[in-house]
Every structure is written in C-alpha cells, then in structure tokens.
C-alpha cells in the first residue's frame, strides 16, 4: 500500500505517494528526476549513491524512501547552493582531474562534504580511509586524493 511522504531535498519540499519498497536512490532519480545521484551496485558497496540524510553521509540504495519522511536529504544537485557556481570541492576535482567517467563522483563529493566540515585539514591517510567507501574504476585514486587536498584548501581560503 502506498504511503504519503514529505521530504526536503536540497532545501525544497516534495510530497509524494510511494510504495514502501521504493529505494531512496530510485525515489530521487525517478520521482524527483534528480539523476545526479548515481546507482551502481545497489547493495551498499560502491558508494555511487551516497547522499546526506540530515547532514550525514549514507547509502541511498540501502534506505527506503518512506524512511526519509520528514527528513532533510542533500544530493549533488544542491552542492552549488543555487549559485550555479562549482562548490570548492567540485572545483578541486575539476582542477586536479579527479574524475574521468564521473560515475563515482557524486557519491565521493557527498561523502566529502561532511568529512571536510569535521576535518578541514585531513592527512592523506585520512582522505584515503574516507575514499575506501567509494569505488572508482578509472583514475586509480591518486588524482582524487589530490583533488580532495585542493578542495580542502579552497574551502579554507573561501572562509578565511
């Protein structure tokens, strides 16, 4: 039986009627047409579907949309805060070639947002530990690590 839910996504409210079995990842992509959240493995391993639920990085393929009722979800589409400008972390990825095909990138970016808020000046080891939860099959991670380091610096410069 469908259930009515009200979810805030990137500071906009959406009311929808959904089946309980609808995954949050599919809700975002198919119901809200926010296709920036990518779906890779659908069992929590690849990290491509990572979004923020009330500010916390989680796998959207391991949550049901009904569980997001009354909650705040942030996806890669909201990273610019409505400014149409790249977020400093995105700028780091652009500048340092932190992506090739880009499939894994939205999940990595969403993992990084709370990580760099809590840990504005991470070591390479801390960055690699964080990235272990996101699989990239193009770049070999070196460029991603450099992109995160630049992104962290750009955030600090912006807030200085």
């Amino acid at each position: 039986m469908d259930q009515t839910i009200s979810v805030r996504v990137n500071d906009r409210s959406y009311d929808r009627s959904v089946e309980p079995r609808l995954l949050l990842s599919d809700f975002l992509r198919h119901e809200l047409e926010l296709t920036g959240t990518h779906v890779g493995c659908e069992h929590g391993v690849c990290g491509a579907c990572t979004v923020l639920l009330d500010g916390v990085a989680v796998r959207s393929c391991l949550l049901f949309a009904v569980q997001a009722d009354g909650r705040d979800v942030s996806t890669v589409e909201g990273l610019d805060g409505g400014t149409q400008a790249l977020h400093p972390i995105q700028h780091g990825f652009w500048e340092r070639h932190g992506l090739q095909c880009g499939f894994c990138t939205p999940g990595i970016l969403m993992s990084l947002v709370p990580f760099l808020q809590e840990n504005p000046n991470p070591t390479e080891e801390e960055i690699r530990d964080l990235l272990s939860g996101n699989i990239c099959r193009c770049t070999g991670y070196q460029k991603i690590v450099e992109a995160v380091q630049l992104g962290a610096r750009l955030i600090q410069e912006k807030s200085a």
């Binding site: 916390v56 949550l63 993992s111």
Partner: peptide, 9 residues
C-alpha cells in the same frame, strides 16, 4: 567495521 558511510547508519 565497514566504511564510515555504513557505520553512519
């Protein structure tokens, strides 16, 4: 235990 994104949940 798994990755931070898994431990979050």
């Amino acid at each position: 235990i798994a990755h931070s994104q898994i431990r979050n949940r």
